[in-house]
Design a protein around this nucleic acid. Structure first.
Lengths: 146, 146
DNA sequence: AGAGTAAATGCAACTGGTTGCAAGTAGGCG
DNA sequence: CGCCTACTTGCAACCAGTTGCATTTACTCT
């Protein structure tokens, strides 16, 4: 057995099936260091099994996302990216000038989430947020050139 | 002169031009009550001037968005929507079950934004956020059916 | 008013992603 | 083990949105 047994169980418990294609997509994502685009995943899987279709990749990413095993992030420029989410939730601060990405601890958003729940009765999904803005370096650059 | 004179000035000051197409797109958005999809705007403009191209609509929406005159929101299901933003900033709470949309006051996010700026030196763009989750009604429904 | 220029338009081709459908397959159950 | 059915796959057609390019047009400067 590989290191994915709990993932397989979770899939089956929720009425899904484990197929070779899914297995390959899964391991691609788990063993990747950070974000991957759908095309990157597609290429990796195709290297092992050339008959996969891109729609299979997207559909699998969809079910993994529904199960909160992965997170989709729109980095703003071009393709969406996907990443494996372990137990710790985190968020991304994306600089709209230099495209640099830093992580943001979940606590920052957990607090707002709690407040929204209290005031509005709305339970917000705050698993994974992409927050755009200007990083410290690019702020300095802009004010300097003024 | 219509009621858009300050918008026209803002466009010109930022090196853009006011064209009839832009004018029509602009008034469509300003006079709409809420969110509009690009296709809806396209149809409205085409009724008046049948030669517009959809790419013109998207490009105009792009510059208006850059100038923070409108906000683009991905409602999650299907097409992106656009809306005119006046002076007050607001956010949306979107129920992932019943798709109901409620507004969220800017204060909730302004606070996190300030904290992120202080701790991380990152100036977040928090103009307009779409927050998914479960509304009060759908939460009750789900727990009741368990 | 008229010339010059940067920006905008319309078109067509393209990209990322989605969907409907017929055929195939995982996995439960006897 | 082998049947059965719901889920999944690959394919092709499709959809929203983007891009490159030649032509046109709004605005500036004189």
């Amino acid at each position: 057995m590989g290191c994915e047994s709990e993932t397989i169980d979770l899939l089956r418990e929720t009425g899904h099936k484990m197929t070779p294609q899914r297995m390959m997509i899964l391991t691609s994502l788990r063993h990747a260091k950070g974000h991957m685009t759908a095309a990157e995943i597609f290429d990796r899987v195709k290297a092992e099994y050339p008959y996969v279709d891109i729609s299979t990749v997207y559909r699998t990413l969809g079910v993994l996302k529904d199960l909160h095993l992965i997170a989709e992030t729109d980095m703003g420029l071009g393709d969406a990216t996907f990443e494996w989410v372990g137990n710790e939730r985190h968020h991304h601060l994306i600089c709209r000038k230099c495209n640099h990405v830093t992580q943001l601890d979940h606590d920052y958003l957990a607090e707002v989430g709690a407040k929204i729940a209290k005031d509005m009765g709305f339970r917000a999904d705050l698993d994974h947020f992409a927050i755009f803005g200007l990083c410290a370096g690019c702020q300095k650059e802009l004010t300097a050139s003024k």
